[in-house]
Amino acid sequence: MADRTQDKTHEAVGDVKSVLKGIKGMGDTLRGSVNESIDTAFNDREGEIKNKAVKEKGEAELHQADSRFGGTAARGTTTTAGGTTTGAGAHSGGVGNMSSTVPQGRLGGEPTTTRERF
Rank of each mutant, 00 (worst) to 15 (best):
V19F: 03
G76L: 06
E36Q: 12
L62W: 02
Q64H: 11
S100G: 13
A90G: 09
G93D: 05
T114I: 12
V34F: 13
G27N: 10
L62K: 01
S92C: 08
F69D: 04
G87Y: 10
T101K: 14
T9L: 14
P111L: 11
G32T: 01
G22P: 00
D28F: 07
M26T: 11
L20W: 02
A81E: 15
G96D: 08
G82Y: 06
T101L: 11
R117A: 14
G109P: 02
E110K: 10
G76S: 07
E61V: 01
Q64F: 04
S67W: 03
I49P: 00
G22F: 01
R115T: 14
G27H: 06
A41P: 00
E116T: 05
V13H: 03
T86Y: 04
D39R: 01
T78K: 15
G58E: 04
I38T: 06
G71L: 09
A88D: 08
G94K: 12
G93V: 01
D66L: 03
G71A: 14
A81D: 13
R31K: 14
T79N: 04
K52D: 10
V19L: 09
A81C: 01
T112S: 15
H63C: 02
T9G: 01
E59V: 07
G94T: 13
K24V: 15
E11W: 13
T85W: 06
V16H: 11
M26R: 03
K24D: 12
D28Y: 05
R68K: 15
T112E: 13
A41T: 06
K57I: 08
S33Y: 12
R115M: 10
L107D: 02
T101V: 13
T101A: 15
T29M: 12
E110Q: 09
V16D: 04
D44V: 02
T85E: 15
T114Q: 12
K52H: 10
S92E: 09
N35F: 15
T77R: 00
T5E: 11
G87N: 12
D44E: 06
T78F: 09
G70H: 09
N51P: 01
Q6M: 08
G27D: 10
R45M: 07
H91L: 14
T85K: 15
V13K: 03
G76E: 05
K17T: 08
D7N: 13
K52M: 05
D7I: 05
K17N: 11
A41V: 03
T77F: 10
N43K: 10
I23F: 05
T112A: 15
F118K: 11
G47N: 04
K57M: 11
G14H: 05
V102W: 04
R31I: 06
A53S: 11
R45C: 02
V95T: 11
K17I: 12
V102H: 04
